[in-house]
Write a protein that binds this DNA or RNA. Structure first.
Length: 211
DNA sequence: GACCAGATGTACT
DNA sequence: GTACATCTGGTCT
């Protein structure tokens, strides 16, 4: 890619707009690859580039929390407007973050699964307990831990540049770099388990664009 | 690479 | 009350 982005460059980027999230969930998932997550923390601004996501298709998707129209306090954010963050707690110790898509009343989302640090790597490493390397942010629980996301961020508005938001710095991920496959951890979801809704950028390609 | 323990919120009976 | 979860890290092979 071009020269490394400075903190100043990053704070000038406009957040992705509301209409970005209102599209088809699979389209949103694919176009999120290569986008930046910006995160304000007491330690400073952090930026990471998304490398892996999964689409969750709402009421018809057995793997989705809102399958069959489930609407509970936990899933309430998914039923709301697009462009918000849905964070939930799982396995007794991990958080997972999703971005809500489509229109209010259509509870679909994209799970953020993996990323590479662009700014504030040392902060991320510290929050990850000193672990570094290629596995730094290669899972949804790790991503939340590294970015300091938890249930306090559930419902956060991603279209305003405060707390946490997403932005496009112009980096493009060619289709040839994207691997498509079945989602992780949804084996018991019947036929939905096989749907190819996981999208992952080949890491070797991505490192070229990550810096 | 495969296997497994770990810890607790959430959904449903 | 109970089963299980959009997972991770450590251990063993």
């Amino acid at each position: 890619m071009s020269k490394p982005l400075s903190r100043r460059d990053l704070t000038r980027l406009a957040p992705l707009e509301h209409r970005f999230y209102q599209r088809d969930t699979v389209d949103v998932a694919v176009s999120l690859l290569g986008k930046l997550i910006l995160r304000e923390l007491p330690e400073g601004l952090i930026a990471v580039r998304l490398t892996e996501v999964e689409a969750y298709l709402g009421v018809v998707d057995r793997a989705c929390h809102t399958f069959g129209g489930r609407r509970t306090p936990r899933t309430e954010v998914m039923w709301g407007d697009a462009g918000r963050l849905y964070v939930y707690f799982t396995y007794g110790m991990h958080h997972c973050a999703n971005v809500v898509t489509r229109a209010a009343g259509v509870p679909e989302a994209v799970l953020l699964r993996g990323a590479l640090p662009v700014l504030g790597r040392e902060v991320v490493v510290a929050r990850r307990g000193g672990r570094d390397g290629r596995t730094l942010l290669d899972g949804p629980g790790k991503l939340c831990q590294g970015l300091g996301l938890d249930r306090a961020d559930n419902g956060a508005d991603l279209t305003s540049a405060s707390g946490v938001w997403l932005a496009d710095d112009g980096a493009r991920v060619p289709d040839a770099w994207v691997r498509r496959g079945p989602r992780v951890g949804v084996a018991s979801a019947g036929e939905a388990a096989a749907w190819p809704l996981r999208f992952q950028v080949e890491l070797d390609s991505m490192t070229a664009v990550a810096e």
